[in-house]
Write a protein that binds this DNA or RNA. Structure first.
Lengths: 338, 338
DNA sequence: CTGAAAGCGCTTACAG
DNA sequence: CTGAAAGCGCTTACAG
């Protein structure tokens, strides 16, 4: 097994070459699979390598080939029970396909402003590409990465066509959800959102709006709250909506949904009899309620996987689709019954 | 600003050397700060580098110095609302001090069994050290890392003295919490836990036990549940405890606490009047209850930071403490009032 | 099909 | 204090 015969210095390609009576070039070719090499020689070398657990020095490969087999995943600084699991799960997906392709992921957290950490990573040549997991309307990082000409994919939807994007079809999903709710006979649906500078939130609102247009219904702006940045604001919105006699509240995400459900409970308003509720993004938070909540369900791990796959394709010079839109599910539950 | 005068090839140390009329060695010395160099020369070189945004090629540095300026953070595969934020937050902490020291972090997720991904990282020489964020009683990864002789720190407490550990003082914290509850006049306190193979859970239980011993109280094993691996089991335990007339339930973590609080609500049992509740680990989940919960509070970001700091110290050859124990806070809230 | 040689971009004894 | 040279461990035209 562990035969470090004599010295414990880490093995190099030359060691195996000497041991096998071939040249280092040949060993290199056997490992990389590039260049012509006799099948017998190749097999002999591979067998030796396997048996002795030789792994080539990544830095040397990196230097010789100008590639690192690392990609960066850029995470925003978040701390809510909705956001953390999202990015963590997405990261899992990315890592899964990265691993499968012998890539490693370097995690870098951004504060939304500073590009220095990315710059260092790029200029030091520590990564071959990057995945930007949250995007804003006027995204500083997108601009930066475009300018740096490094392969990258953005999770999110953009007007810019020169940015490779992977995302769930948030627009289509919300549109369909609202359309379905209309079809169930619900007359008016309010929208509660926040942080409209994030692309994901813009998309959701856009879907909501499109459903109104598609249904040829007039969208009353009194039913729309786009800037609920605090619990108090959500509560106030819920009170106003209750008084306005709206039938259903569509929440941009489970963070808002959580506040809405609690507020309604405190107000003694029963879901769905006295108020229906739906959320644009299913997370485990929703599992905690006595009443199950209608929502959209996205496969976040898959989002990570696909983003990574697209990025790797880019890195390897394949042509990739500008936009990859992932599927969604509409989960109808008690909260919109009746 | 951006003066790629003519060619866009990335700058090397030789380019700046030529431009400044010095040798590459001198430039290298200016950058690294190692070796003797004239202050004037150094400043001139540094100024040039700063102005032209030169960053040394990491692979070349890596190869020449046998160090990567990367560390790996090993994460377990988790998906609960309690675990994900914990590891994510810990990762933030690690990254923060890594960044500050010009290190990058490579994330690798483990399934608890396979050591291949770690092996590859080590043998490829892609990292200088590792942080193991969850530890088990008989930890396969700990064994593996010890054998590989790579610098690493484990988050968690171990019997082994040859493993560098950084952790909150879970034993001391739980012990103190229980002692305080006793001091409040509570006569008997039940313990609800699970997954006793994880070191963190063993520590918490140990603290609980020690508090009993310290208080010279007899610990009735009917009050102890160590293997609540499902919601149903927690519910059953809560029912039994309610019937047994116990006064207070100590939950190993907020995952269990969550189940306990909900179950009590469904049973119509009021907290704290009819049952007191405390948790060994504060997370945001607790913020969602109508009644505030007594708990231990740990600073997870700091846990990450310290782990990383200790690891970097090891890598740089400093002597580090075998065990670093971080502080905790006891947060007394309504749930144990009266 | 295989090997010798140059090169990737740094660092670091060794001279001076 | 500074430079020329060898070396880190690979890869890859170039010959043969």
């Amino acid at each position: 097994m562990n035969n470090n015969s004599g010295n414990d210095k880490t093995m190099t390609i030359h060691d195996v070459a000497r041991e096998l009576g071939v040249s280092a070039s040949t060993v290199s070719r056997a490992i990389s699979g590039k260049g012509r090499i006799g099948a017998a020689t190749r097999d002999r070398i591979l067998a030796y390598i396997e048996e002795h657990g030789f792994y080539p020095n990544a830095a040397a490969q990196s230097l010789a080939q100008s590639r690192t087999n690392n990609i960066a995943i850029i995470l925003p600084e978040v701390n809510t029970l909705v956001d953390m699991p999202f990015f963590h799960t997405c990261m899992y997906g990315v890592e899964e396909v990265a691993q499968a392709n012998d890539y490693d992921i370097i995690v870098v957290t951004t504060n939304g402003n500073d590009t220095k950490p990315l710059e260092r990573l790029i200029k030091n040549r520590k990564v071959d590409g990057m995945i930007l997991t949250r995007t804003y309307e006027n995204d500083k990082y997108v601009k930066f990465l475009k300018q740096k000409q490094i392969p990258f994919v953005a999770v999110g939807k953009f007007p810019d066509d020169d940015v490779v994007q992977v995302d769930h079809d948030n627009v289509g999903a919300c549109k369909e959800l609202v359309t379905v709710l209309f079809a169930k006979g619900i007359q008016n649906i309010a929208y509660l959102g926040s942080n409209m500078d994030q692309m994901v939130n813009r998309c959701r609102y856009q879907g909501y709006e499109e459903a109104y247009r598609k249904g040829k219904r007039k969208l009353n702006q009194d039913l729309v709250y786009k800037d609920l940045s605090s619990r108090a604001m959500v509560e106030k919105a819920v009170e106003e909506l209750k008084n306005s006699g709206v039938e259903c509240i569509l929440c941009q995400d489970d963070y808002i949904c959580d506040e809405v459900v609690r507020k309604l409970a405190r107000m003694g308003v029963r879901i769905p009899d006295q108020m229906k509720v739906a959320s644009c993004h299913y997370s485990r938070i929703l599992e905690n309620y006595p009443v199950t909540i209608t929502s959209l369900k996205f496969n976040i791990t898959e989002l990570g996987r696909r983003s990574c796959q697209v990025l790797l394709d880019m890195i390897h010079g394949k042509t990739v689709p500008d936009k990859t839109l992932l599927d969604y599910e509409i989960i109808l539950k008690e909260s919109t019954k009746g």
